[in-house]
Design a binder for these strands. Structure first.
Lengths: 246, 246
DNA sequence: CAGTGGTCTAGACCACATA
DNA sequence: ATGTGGTCTAGACCACTGT
């Protein structure tokens, strides 16, 4: 016989769901400086008592805190505050078309290369091909309100997207097309500062000494590499932004 | 009377917990190209039937997928596959000391400025002070195996860390110290490519035309801004890396 | 209204860690 | 042996959405 049910819509002392109340309460303790890095937190059963909720509920609150990197839970020994050095933030890398139109601006793309060619050695290696195997190669410049924002130099594994070269890239970005063709993927990327190559400088309309932000991204579908892209942004026009908060 | 309890350690057809089995099964469907962007996924009750688990369990699996940005759940209408463009990745920005020693290398810091001074206008604004208020200002270069890797130009709100100037920054990084003093915080940052300023070039021992990766980070403690840091890395030596996979 | 997701509880079994 | 986290289930109430 249920003694007392706390329902989801019980706006008890706040509009928050119980698991959120527990999470926020612990978070507040953190901000107050309880739980210094490495210290031990109350056990789940203690929290059950303190907040008058079930163990599943405190479990969920703790799982949320764990997901944001604030605490570490060790089976058999307890829950501990982490060294906050490792806090991770999320950095979104979006399709350039979405990004530009999302700002309410006009996106335009101009295609400067779109062909099959023998794979250079380093490209072949990263795409899991042999040197000289055919790869698709496109070079496209993306404009935001007619200002060149990104030079996209991309190699594609033909086995993954046989129809790639036939796409009209002034109407659909390679990223968008590839997402349709290769429905799911993982990716690794590096971000660095570099000077533009001769062609990149010309296509972007910038000087060869203007620093650029270069994102190199390798996209894979399970085991098979699909595409290797080098995205070059004029440093003066582009910044990546992010934030972390627990 | 419980008919049949599935226990946590039931390695039913795999070593995975039920919620993980459900998650992986749905993930596999995704990779196979079911659930194209925007399409509707099976309802929770359908999944309960299909996998023979309780609703809480499919709920957790779905919450995991939601957290990784794969699906969107709308109360009252259903669960939908998202446009995978928005997949977020985690980018870790770590304490430079940890990062260097983590690679098994030697870290050394040289302090080039460490004093209180009147806040320049833009710094004051971002730290929530008035122009001319006293701020702490340090300029420190961090070396990895005696190669200059980072120039750290930092302003600190004195109210948050009164003892800041007394710290021996050859032995402890400002980041580390501030984490101890101001136990919890959130941060926003931008990443851009830029040319080094005259002082930065000199301190890093690079030319003024060598592109640099510049991370500008504002750290806050609840409402109060704590510190504003400009971290400059020689572009040839430093890359940020990341990966995303669901 | 029926269907969907959002959440809660109580009790349970397990694996692991520590003593 | 005890305590900790990890997880599951069954049934329940709610809010929201769409017909």
């Amino acid at each position: 016989m249920p003694s007392r049910r706390a329902t989801a819509a019980d706006p008890e002392s706040s509009g928050l769901a119980p698991y959120a109340r527990v999470r926020e309460a612990l978070l507040a303790d953190f901000r107050r400086g309880r739980y210094p890095p490495g210290s031990r937190m109350p056990s789940e059963s203690e929290l059950v008592e303190r907040f008058g909720v079930s163990r599943m509920t405190v479990g969920r609150a703790l799982r949320d805190l764990q997901a944001s990197g604030l605490i570490e839970r060790r089976q058999g020994s307890g829950t501990f505050a982490t060294q906050p050095h490792k806090v991770a933030s999320t950095l979104r890398i979006r399709d350039i078309h979405e990004e530009i139109t999302g700002r309410g601006h006009r996106h335009r793309a101009s295609v400067h290369l779109c062909r099959a060619e023998p794979a250079p050695r380093d490209v072949a290696a990263r795409l899991g091909l042999s040197k000289g195997d055919a790869v698709f190669h496109t070079v496209i410049v993306h404009f935001e309100n007619d200002v060149a924002l990104q030079c996209e130099d991309r190699y594609v594994n033909p086995a993954c997207a046989p129809g790639y070269l036939a796409v009209d890239f002034t109407r659909m970005t390679p990223t968008h097309y590839l997402l349709d063709v290769a429905p799911f993927w993982k990716a690794g990327y590096t971000i660095e500062a570099a000077l533009p190559g001769a062609r990149e400088a010309r296509l972007l309309g910038i000087g060869r000494t203007e620093p650029c932000l270069v994102v190199t991204r390798l996209t894979e579908n399970r085991q098979t590499p699909i595409t290797l892209a080098r995205l070059t942004y004029p440093g003066l026009l582009y910044q990546l932004e992010g934030a972390f908060e627990p």
